[in-house]
Structures are given as structure tokens and as C-alpha cells.
């Protein structure tokens, strides 16, 4: 039953994704591998939409994946799945709040969970990089080394990187600004070749 499966998969994501909305991304790639419910391309689109619409990114992604997989009931099941572990864990912690932050074991566990979680997000970033900046398919069909790189996309990525990291007045701008500008660039320069 797809609804139960969605609830369960997002329950797992909610339970193990540490460090905010971006931390859910590796779990969604894993889900794509296991179920084939959506492609990597589609997932990258969903990340972009989730970043540029109101609401927490993790929740937006659960809703989007749920909806794409199984319509409105799917969206609701995925979202409820994602938030249920949070509610349970926080209610437990709230009872023992005074000690939680100082607990030796909690501290030790998070000391290593944090770098692991960062690594998982970075690895998911590599997957996004592969589908957005490289043409692995044309390269494998013997297109030569130059055909591996999608130069339009790479130039855009470098521009966005510089703007978001080194240009003072732009650094603080909301990501939606850069997403919108990239969409315009994509349409004007026909990034998909469509």
C-alpha cells in the first residue's frame, strides 16, 4: 500500500535526518534508488521548488514527493510521516530538558553525527552536480571529453557561487532571487536545449 509506504519512508527520514531541511536530501536520493518513484532530475526540480516557496524545506519536499508519487493523500501521508518522529522525540526531550544538552552520551553522539550528516548532504550535492553540470550520457556515448561538461550550466553555477559568497550586498539576498534569475537564464539561453 503506497500511502503506508510513503508514511513509513518519510518517518525514517524524519527520524534520521539531522541538521534541517537540507539533511533530508540524501534520504530522498536513497528513496529514488529504491523505489523509482521519481528520477534524479525530478528530485533536483523538487529541491529548487521547495527552496523557493514558503514553508520549511524538508516539509515542502515531503509534500512534493508525496504528491508526485500518490496525489493529495500521498502528500498528506508523506508530510505526516516526516513530522511524527519530531513530535515524539521533542515531547520526550521536553520532559527531560534540563539534562538533555548536558547529557554525556547525547553530546558524544552528536559530535560525530554532525560531520556524518554534513558528509551525506555533500554527497547528495555531488549527485545534483552530476545531473546539472555534466552530460554523463553523451560522454558515455563517445562524445569526447569536452562533451562531458555542460558549459552553460557551469558558467551559471560559477556566477551564482561568486554572487552568493563574495559580493557583499548580494550575499544576504534570499536564495529565491538566485533561483528566479537562474530560471530566466535557463529560458533565455535554452539550457535544456529544448
Amino acid at each position: 500500500m503506497i500511502y503506508l509506504r510513503l508514511f513509513f519512508e518519510f518517518f525514517k527520514t524524519g527520524l534520521f535526518a539531522v541538521g534541517g531541511g537540507m539533511a533530508t536530501i540524501p534520504f530522498l536520493y536513497d528513496l529514488s534508488d529504491k523505489t523509482g518513484w521519481f528520477t534524479y532530475d525530478k528530485l533536483a526540480d523538487m529541491i529548487a521548488v521547495s527552496e523557493s516557496t514558503p514553508g520549511p524545506i524538508g516539509v515542502n519536499m515531503a509534500t512534493f514527493v508525496g504528491f508526485t508519487t500518490a496525489g493529495i493523500p500521498g502528500a498528506i501521508c508523506a508530510t505526516l510521516g516526516l513530522i511524527t518522529p519530531s513530535v515524539i522525540i521533542i515531547l520526550i526531550i521536553a520532559r527531560f530538558l534540563a539534562n538533555f544538552n548536558d547529557n554525556k552520551y547525547v553530546k558524544s553522539a552528536f559530535y560525530t553525527i554532525r560531520p556524518a550528516s554534513t558528509a551525506l548532504i555533500a554527497a547528495a550535492g555531488v549527485l545534483v552536480l552530476k545531473i546539472s553540470l555534466l552530460n554523463v550520457d553523451t560522454f558515455q556515448q563517445g562524445g569526447g571529453i569536452l562533451s562531458l561538461f555542460d558549459f552553460k550550466a557551469i558558467i551559471l553555477a560559477v556566477i551564482v557561487y561568486v554572487l552568493t559568497n563574495f559580493v557583499k550586498p548580494l550575499k544576504k539576498l534570499h536564495p529565491v532571487v538566485f533561483i528566479a534569475l537562474s530560471a530566466v537564464a535557463g529560458i533565455v539561453f535554452k539550457f535544456a536545449g529544448a
Binding site: A48, G125, L129, S132, L133, Y161, F178, L181, A185
Partner: peptide
């Protein structure tokens, strides 16, 4: 979306 994906990487 092809443009947006490049941005998402960053």
C-alpha cells in the same frame, strides 16, 4: 529547471 538545477548545486 535546467538553469535552476545549476543554481541548486551552489
Amino acid at each position: 529547471f535546467a538553469g535552476i538545477r545549476a543554481c541548486v548545486c551552489v
